[in-house]
């Protein structure tokens, strides 16, 4: 099992906000077997080269969630990322702290906001009056009910998804992919009695700020697929109470809109999303678009083969979806 060693240039973000004027990168040269995890490389640096490098780590087997960081621009677990493929692809390994969280020092970030967003969604079982927990016995759950958890029980709350998420970066209201995946876990739990309240609350609690870029799903080291669970939550929310605010109105509007002509009517989509008063606020933006891309403000013509589009819609209409 002896592997050949390769040269591994590693550049690590260093910053102590209390004493350093600006962040810097320290460069270390190691000789490592290609399958060596980045975490092991960092521990080697700490042990042999610079014990002052600080970071979080514990289990080294991708179950405690401590060592999430940005490795060659991707948010992931250091213990689960071997150096070989990184060196092949990038020639070096650049390590930064997670994004969307303030740096405490070096690779350690302040995760208070991350945990706070999670706790805000009240992640605990609320007893279901329609299905009370049996006294002195465990409850029963059908295989179908168990399947609905999908991969959410695997979540280790490492924060990689939160670090990768542009919606978190842009909007303080967005609870983050992990929190929503956790919320989903409660919404589908047959033992939980707060399905409706959870969905109603999240409809206006940031659910629709997710822009479906799927970077969270790409980042997740445990294949929890948060973006797909966010999609499920959106579907369930709409089924529960229809389109009630911008995000869901936009989604429903989008769907109905394309059905008409087979192509998006941008101008109409604005009306489908906003009420008259809110539309006023969109006027400056509308004028700008009219000046730069006048074709977008005109009603498009129906495409050829509109009937084919309609067939697709009918298939989708017949498809049974998840309901809470």
């Amino acid at each position: 099992m002896e592997a050949e060693f390769v040269k591994a240039p590693i550049e690590v973000y260093r910053y102590d906000p209390g004493t350093d004027r600006a962040p810097r990168y320290d460069r270390f040269e190691l000789e490592l077997a290609p399958h060596t995890p980045v975490l092991t490389a960092l521990l080697k640096i700490r042990s042999d080269l610079d014990p002052s490098l600080t970071m979080r780590y514990s289990c080294r087997s991708s179950i405690c969630g401590s060592c999430a960081m940005v490795i060659n621009s991707k948010s992931r677990l250091a213990c689960q990322t071997p150096v070989g493929p990184e060196l092949e692809r990038h020639g070096r390994i650049v390590i930064d702290p997670m994004r969307n969280m303030p740096v405490l020092r070096d690779l350690v970030v302040e995760m208070g906001g991350f945990w706070g967003n999670y706790r805000k969604l009240e992640p605990h079982l609320v007893e279901n009056p329609d299905r009370p927990l049996p006294e002195g016995k465990t409850s029963s759950m059908s295989p179908e009910e168990v399947d609905r958890f999908k991969e959410t029980p695997r979540c280790i709350a490492c924060g990689a998804c939160y670090s990768a998420c542009p919606a978190v970066e842009h909007d303080a209201e967005f609870p983050g992919p992990m929190s929503l995946a956790k919320l989903y876990r409660f919404v589908v739990d047959p033992r939980d009695g707060a399905h409706r309240e959870r969905l109603l609350k999240i409809q206006t609690g940031g659910l629709w700020l997710c822009m479906r870029c799927h970077l969270c799903t790409e980042a997740c080291p445990k294949d929890v697929r948060p973006s797909e669970r966010i999609r499920d939550l959106k579907e369930m929310a709409i089924r529960l109470q229809g389109a009630t605010e911008h995000g869901s109105k936009h989604a429903i509007g989008f769907k109905d809109n394309i059905r008409e002509k087979g192509v998006l009517n941008e101008f109409k989509l604005v009306r489908q999303t906003y009420n008259s008063l809110e539309m006023l606020a969109q006027v400056p933006q509308g004028l700008k678009i009219r000046r730069k891309k006048p074709e977008l403000t005109q009603t498009p013509k129906a495409i050829e083969g509109l009937a084919e589009v309609e067939k697709l819609y009918q298939i989708l209409d017949d498809e049974p979806g998840d309901s809470p």
């Binding site: 906000p17 209390g18 002052s52 600080t54 970071m55 405490l104 020092r105 070096d106």
Partner: peptide, 8 residues
Amino acid sequence: RSSVYNIN
């Protein structure tokens, strides 16, 4: 010698 998150 840092006082912040000194895991050393």
